[in-house]
Structures are given as structure tokens and as C-alpha cells.
Design a protein around this nucleic acid. Sequence first.
DNA 1: CCTTTTTACTTTATCGGTTAAGCAAAATGT
DNA 2: ACATTTTGCTTAACCGATAAAGTAAAAAGG
Lengths: 346, 346
Amino acid sequence: MSANLKSKKQITLADIAKKLNISKVAVSKALRNQSDISAETKKKVVNLAKELGYTPNIIARNLSAKNTHTIGLVIPKINHHFFAEAIESIYKIASQHNYEIIMTVSQESTAEEIKHIRSLMAMRVDGLLISVTENTKETSIFQEMKNRGVPLIFFDRIIEGLGFHCIVSDDEYGSYEIVKYAIEKGYTKIGHIGGYKNTNIGKLRCSGYTKAMEEANLEINPDFIVCGGFSVSDGYYGFMKLYNNKSLPEIIFTVTYPVALGVFKAAKELGISIPNDIDVISFGDASYNQFLNPSITGVHQPAAEIGKIALELLIDQIEGRLLIEEKKIVMPVKINFCQTCVKKEN
Amino acid sequence: MSANLKSKKQITLADIAKKLNISKVAVSKALRNQSDISAETKKKVVNLAKELGYTPNIIARNLSAKNTHTIGLVIPKINHHFFAEAIESIYKIASQHNYEIIMTVSQESTAEEIKHIRSLMAMRVDGLLISVTENTKETSIFQEMKNRGVPLIFFDRIIEGLGFHCIVSDDEYGSYEIVKYAIEKGYTKIGHIGGYKNTNIGKLRCSGYTKAMEEANLEINPDFIVCGGFSVSDGYYGFMKLYNNKSLPEIIFTVTYPVALGVFKAAKELGISIPNDIDVISFGDASYNQFLNPSITGVHQPAAEIGKIALELLIDQIEGRLLIEEKKIVMPVKINFCQTCVKKEN
DNA sequence: CCTTTTTACTTTATCGGTTAAGCAAAATGT
DNA sequence: ACATTTTGCTTAACCGATAAAGTAAAAAGG
């Protein structure tokens, strides 16, 4: 019963060939406008193909072709401004270069990540663009890809030393700069809700913070540092954890923008006012930040640029125009001055 | 020179077969753990496959299989809270059902939309999930898909009457309710920055507004209505257009949340205060709305639910469990009361 | 001990396209 | 008028996996 609901058989070259009483190769050539088919035959083929609603089966074409004009994208999360903007940019560039993107979302799970990478390799994508999960430590799958020569570029959340190109924001310097700015504004008790130390962004954003503190000879109170993930909920629980300590810092530097939003949420629940009772600065921002109360002073990341460059680099590599070994591109960042971290009344 | 950079030839069943001196069919069966292969052979095959890093070529498998376990998704935009949330949900459900999503973004361009649909059909996706662009009027491509029996579900931005299932928010009722709420709060001069009338959401959200106004015997000033797209920039220019008229409404009901943000942006630039000088309510909201100043009172759409139901419905249809003809599912909405449209001082 | 069944494979054909090689008829050259 | 080239196709082979059918050898049955 359900059989007649299934989609009807698709039209193939052979169907067209039979109707016109020519070989399917002739049809294939006619549709690709090859020179050894007469104008008359071409016209007949093209017309019939349109009439029957013929759509070439890319699967079949890709089977014999060496490339699929398809790129795999593996990201940890979508609903996060940085990724949303990067993805949007990647899709735009892909469309311009006539590549199809197959995006997968690991949901910050390493098991899902591996599953998706395997699936994309099985689909024979021409290359991969990956931003790893907050937990990824195991590199064997990437090692395997290196051995097989699968083109791969890491962006934002990267793994160095495996021989793949990487593109990141200037995490350490950006963090250093914004914490230094807070210090210049008179803050001394500065906390950090940071990321896991096994990730490049967790490690570098924390070390930028540390450097700025050390340079100013400020004490780094271990009670003022919490490490975890990169989401709103991590910011929420991170702040709750800080709140349960004896004393709170005057300002908190968060590892990502969503973490800062989590702090906002927790503070709101606790009846704590930002920036009066406690202040917040973050790495990363969002287009809607300007409408927040208060809007968060943070490090602006060129998300669209990072996506664009990552993909262009990958396409260069796929098409054999990239010869260099491992290259790390560090994109400059700048501080977006808003309503937090404005002035500390003495 | 670039040749040696190209990815190495992938391992195939035949490679494994040759090394073990058995047929490739035996290898195929061994890997799929079929009963007519000895335990000993299976072990040898599995071990060698792992050693060589064999990844089955899904393209080849799909060529003979009737289905690809792949679903095409066509949306107009990513960086828009409603879609970001819906997509996230669609990816989650797809992963649970072992389907791969191939998402494409039309960027509100009908030409891109058609190109992507053609591309997805060529990839022989098992079905499609589509939210059309703000300009889509031409339905011939959908007609073609109907004729070919390709399973398709429309969500949010739909086209009715073509025989495909549709899932939407209760656009008209939600709009009616929120405008009625504004009227109860004492507003009488209510404007609308709406969508194009050729889209269901543009039409219905406007008619909900109209109904509430007529029911309250309030005059609908044509100068208070602007129609356009659904993005931040449309809200921005829409407000600028209203501003250039002789008089402004007291409150504006926007067709989407991004449009409301556009109004915020324009008002900020013009030095107009929201909600004191002019107030705003919107259809749609965002998770970060709670942090805005003022947070916008709006109609909450169950984006994740809509994505989930759309995909589950599609999978049911693909797997032949859905027999009914055209069905329209209207999801109930509710108002999210925030800091706009609070009280009109008399 | 000879027939039947089972085991463990192999061979063949197919999915829908593409490339490479082959080949008859028409057009061109001398 | 006959050799040569060009035109416009066809046939064969392949991409990598899989389903279906075939088969030799080993095990079981009577």
C-alpha cells in the first residue's frame, strides 16, 4: 500500500536513449554539448530531457569522477553567533565556487564528531572544514585523515601539529588587550570564566588574561577562575560557582560571548546588577550586542572572514594550488567598546 | 607537481579482496557480517580493512540503493534566531534517525533557491524540507516535484495548495492576540512593518493585525503600514520610511524579530527612545531577548518544535508511513511579555 | 556408501553515468 | 576515382558496492 506512495522512478539517460532510439552515450554527450553530436540530435535530446524532467544522477556521476564538488563541515554548535556568522559566510563562498556544503553538528560530543567525520569521508567529500568540540583530545581520526591525504582545514577551535592548516582569531593577544584595558580602567580583582584547557581557545584566552595580570603585578586569585565549556549554561553555572565563594571579583572576563550571556542570566536571577555590582567583558561578540543592556565590551572576532578564508584555503588545497606544509593564520581582533567596563568609580 | 598533493587513492573492496585472495563480494559480505562467510574469513577481512583504513564508498552504495538516507534542507537565512533554532533541532532529530542533512541557503534569492533544489534532487536526497524565500511566487519547480513524487514538507514560509504538508506557527491568531493586547494597554495609533503579501507569513501576520484593529473599531492609517522583507535591514529602512511621514504611530508591530531589531537600530540612530517615544512589539523572539534594553514583548514561536515535527513528518512520508493528502499543521503560539508595550501613560 | 544438505564461497549483473576506443557513412582532397 | 579525413554515432569498459544466482567441497542423513 505504501509502495505507490514512494517516489516514482527517476528518468535516466537510458530512458531518453530508448525513446529516441540512440545510445545512452549519445544522450550523455548531447546533454553535455560535446562536439561529436549533431545539432539536430542535441536538440531532440535536450527537448525530450526537459519534457521528461530529467535530472542527472550526481551520485552516478561522482562514482566515476575523482571529485564530488562537495565539502564537509563539522562544527560543535549552530546557535552561537560566531558559528552562525561563520557558516553563513562559508555557504556564501561555497555557492560562488560551485561547491556543495554538507554541514554536520557535533553538539560538543566527540563521539558525534567522529561519526560525522566518518560519514563525510564515506560520502567522499573533497575536503573538510572542522572546528572541534570542547572535549576533543583524541587525534587518531585526524592522523588517519592525514595518512589518507584528505584535505582538511581547522578553524577557530583547532588542533596544531598534525600537519593541517589552521585559522584562528588572535586569542591570546585579544584576551591580553581586553584584560589590560580593564586594568587601565582601574579594575584589580579580575576573574575569568574560561574554557577547558585542552582546547586552544580555552588555553590561549586564559594565558592572555594571565599575562595581562602578571604584567600589571596583579594577584591572580585561583578562586576567581572557573573553567568549563563555551555555552550560555557554562556561563550560568560558572557564575553560580564564583558566587558561592567568599568574595567575588569586580569584573569577569568570559571565554566566549554566550558564556557572558550566561553570567547575565545568573546575575539577573540573583538580583545582581551588571555593571554596577559586578562587571563583565568577553571574548567574542554578537550583532545584537548593541541592543543589550548593558551592551558588553568584548573582543570582536572576524567570524565571516575566518569562514571565508578557511574555505578558500581548502578549495585551493583541493584544487592543488596549495603546496606549503602546515600554516597557521592568526586573524587580528579588535575591542568593541560598549557599556560594560566603562569606568570604575574610586 | 600538484598531483602528489592530491589525496591518495581510497581503499576499495577490491583492494582488500586482492590482498586476501578472495572475491570482493566475499569481502563485502564479511564486512556486513553476513551468515554465509566463515568466522575466520570475517576476522581476516575486518582486520585488514581496519589496517588499511577502509571506508565504504557511500556513493557507490547509494547508486544501487533506492534511498540515500539523506535529506535536503532549503532555508532563506541562517543568522536569524528562528532558523538557527529550527536548524539545530532538525540536525538533532536527523542524527537520531540516522539521516544526513544537506542544508542549503537561498539567501532570500529565488534563483539560488531553484538552483539548490535542483542540486539536491540531483543528489537524490530522499526528501526535502523547505522554507521559501520572501520573494518566491513561481511554483513550477514544486509542481515538478509533486509530479515526480519527491517527498517535500514546507515549514514556516509555506506554499499551500500544491499537495505538500505544511507546518507553521499560528501567524494570524498570534498577530491578532498581540495587537489586541496593545489595544488593551491603551494604544490606538498602531503601525505595522510587515512582510511581502505574497508570503503566508506576510499576509497572515498583517491580517491578524487588521482584524484586531477592526474589532476595536480603530482606524488603520495606511501611512502607518510599510511592507518589505524580514531582515534587520528591512526593519531599519521600514522605520526610516515611517519616520519621514508627517506623524508616527505610538507603537509598531513588526512581522519578525529581526525587523524589530532594525527598528531599534534606526531609532537609536535617530535619537528616538524605545519604549518612551515609540514602542515596539513583534512576531517572533530570540533567546537573547531577555537581555535587551528594553526586551521586546513578542509572539513566541516554537521554532525547535516546528523543525522537529517537520522532519519527523518527512521521515514518516519517506518511509511510507504517511498516507493523507495535504495537511497543514498550525502550531499554537504564546505571547512573551517583556519590557515593551507595558503601560501607556494617559 | 551414496544422497542430500549445508557451508563458504565465486560469478554475473546491476545501479546511472563517463571515458576511451571502434567504426560506418559522408565529405573532402588530389 | 580512389585515398583520406571528418562526422556522428555505437560498443566496451569502468567507477565501487550489492543482490541474486551458481558451484565446489564438506558435513550430515538414511
